[in-house]
């Protein structure tokens, strides 16, 4: 069995805490994710997939329970420590890609490396290499608003990998892609897995759930793990 990389113990996350409309998006989750494996979080809309991803990726902190990343408790870390965790451990591919309009593809890819970036030439080479590996080098100078959906996603993946993170998190990565582009995305995930990275996906796309590269499926409903 692989080494545990992310552990959740009794994790709960409330929105509007203390208010009449308080809502428990994640409600008592115990979960251990191993290194180098592809895990899929699945479940209907509102089941807590995205909230759980944000907790796993140190984008949010739990209301209750403990989250440990690489052995370190991150449940209540202040922002400066969480930033360090995110910078070193995680790369994010968001559902809407969240590329910054007005900047080129290359600048978008290089952005997460700042402010601790290596020398500019070195960083630029790495960004171009990543874009090359994803078949997007020829679009490096294009502004991101000119990209197609598939290109935008590959740019987002290159950006997620710029800090060489051991974990890549993708939220509904195929939601805006057709079948052909979804399969191309899964091929990229396979390569990330072969490189030894841990990949965590959230999706209710059957194509992803049936993919052979997925090692583990975690089913969620009403904020609880149901399978």
């Amino acid at each position: 069995m692989s080494e545990a990389f992310i552990e959740l113990r009794g994790v709960r996350k409330a929105y509007n805490e203390g208010l009449p409309n308080q809502f428990w998006a994640v409600d008592g989750v115990d979960l251990t994710l191993e290194r180098g494996r592809v895990t899929l979080l699945t479940g209907p809309s509102g089941s807590g997939k995205t909230t759980l991803l944000t907790l796993l990726g140190c984008l949010a902190r739990p209301t209750e329970g403990r989250v440990r990343v690489a052995g370190q408790d991150v449940s209540s870390l202040p922002e400066r420590f969480l930033t360090e965790q995110r910078r070193h451990n995680f790369g994010f591919v968001f559902q809407q890609f969240n590329l910054i309009r007005g900047l080129s593809v290359l600048d978008n890819v290089m952005l997460p490396a700042f402010p601790l970036a290596p020398p500019h030439g070195e960083l630029r080479s790495r960004a171009l290499q990543l874009l090359g590996e994803l078949g997007l080098e020829h679009r490096s100078d294009a502004r991101v608003e000119w990209l197609s959906g598939g290109e935008a996603q590959r740019a987002a993946i290159a950006r997620a990998l710029i800090n060489d993170p051991p974990v890549v998190i993708a939220d509904e990565p195929t939601a805006n892609l057709d079948t052909h582009l979804s399969k191309a995305f899964l091929a990229i995930v396979e390569r990330l897995k072969d490189e030894g990275r841990t990949v965590i996906l959230s999706s209710h796309d059957a194509l992803v759930a049936e993919a052979t590269i997925v090692d583990r499926i975690v089913s969620l409903r009403d904020g609880k793990v149901v399978g």
Partner: peptide, 17 residues
């Protein structure tokens, strides 16, 4: 109690800052 993940402990940890 750092070993506890209770809501109170998590709140204390945040409030301390």
């Amino acid at each position: 109690d750092l070993n506890s993940g209770s809501a109170r402990q998590i709140r204390l940890e945040r409030q301390t800052y």
